[in-house]
Amino acid sequence: MELPQLLLIFWAALIFWVLGQIWLAQIVIYPLFAKVGAVDYVHYHRFYSQRIPLPVIIPGFASFLLPFALALYGPIVPLWMSSLNIAAGIVGLLITVMLEIPRHDRLEKDGKNDATISELIRYNWPRTLAISVQSVITFLMLCHVFERI
């Protein structure tokens, strides 16, 4: 197996990991934010924030940025696959930086706020869908590349 195919396999493992993470956050973790008491909220959010870099943040940002490397150095796939993968990554990155991170910062600084938690959940839907799109495209890429072997 050559480097481009190995890059695609690495990418697939990464994006499918991130897919599980984002759906867990959307369906379980973010809704649980509303269930934590106001007195313990800042401590809870800090505990959460300190533990997510390795399993969530690093793979998440990699999923936003690696589609560029995959398009340049990965196996040859139809242009629409690479383009849509990159576009979905950009959507995820913009939502994370412009909408999600500021709300997490607000919750960690100011404590529990039901409106902010609702926004966090609502604004995470487009990111969840963007990562889901990347996962479907990745599956199609795998089919395209490895059907020839």
Rank of each mutant, 00 (worst) to 15 (best):
P126L: 10
A62D: 10
Y41P: 14
E108V: 00
I76P: 15
A87I: 01
L107T: 03
W11F: 12
V136I: 09
V136R: 05
G111Y: 11
W23P: 11
V56E: 08
P55I: 01
L72D: 05
L66I: 01
Q50Y: 07
A130P: 00
S83L: 02
L65S: 14
L72C: 07
K112C: 15
F33C: 05
A69G: 08
P53S: 00
L70Y: 10
L14Q: 02
D114N: 10
F33M: 03
I95S: 15
Y44E: 09
L84M: 10
V42G: 14
C143A: 13
N113V: 06
F61H: 06
L6E: 04
L32N: 12
V133M: 05
I90V: 07
L120V: 04
P55M: 05
I57S: 11
R106K: 15
W17I: 04
V39Y: 08
D110C: 10
V18A: 12
L65F: 08
L99Q: 05
V145A: 14
I52H: 06
S135G: 13
A38P: 12
I137D: 03
T116H: 07
I29G: 15
G20W: 06
L32C: 11
D40S: 11
L94W: 00
A25Y: 11
S63D: 13
I9D: 02
L66E: 03
N85I: 03
I29A: 15
I52K: 07
P78H: 04
F61D: 08
F16C: 12
F47V: 06
A115G: 10
D110V: 03
H43D: 13
Y73T: 03
E119K: 08
L84C: 10
S135Y: 00
V136G: 12
R148E: 12
S83V: 00
G74Y: 02
P55G: 08
L140M: 14
V56A: 13
S63Q: 13
L93H: 09
A38M: 13
Y44W: 02
G74F: 01
S49T: 13
V42C: 15
R103H: 02
A62P: 06
P78I: 00
V39W: 04
M1V: 04
Y30T: 03
L14P: 03
P31I: 01
R148M: 11
Y123T: 02
P102Y: 01
R127I: 01
V18C: 12
W11Q: 14
P78L: 04
G111T: 08
L120M: 13
I15D: 04
P53E: 03
V56T: 08
I131A: 07
P4H: 02
D114I: 02
P55A: 06
Y73N: 09
L107S: 09
A62T: 00
S135R: 00
I117M: 11
I95V: 13
D110R: 06
V145F: 14
V36R: 12
V42L: 12
F33P: 07
N124Y: 13
L107A: 08
M141C: 08
R51S: 14
H104E: 09
M1N: 06
K35F: 15
P75R: 01
Q50I: 04
I57H: 11
I9T: 01
R51F: 03
Q134G: 06
L140S: 15
H104V: 05
L94I: 02
G20E: 05
L84F: 07
L19S: 10
T116R: 07
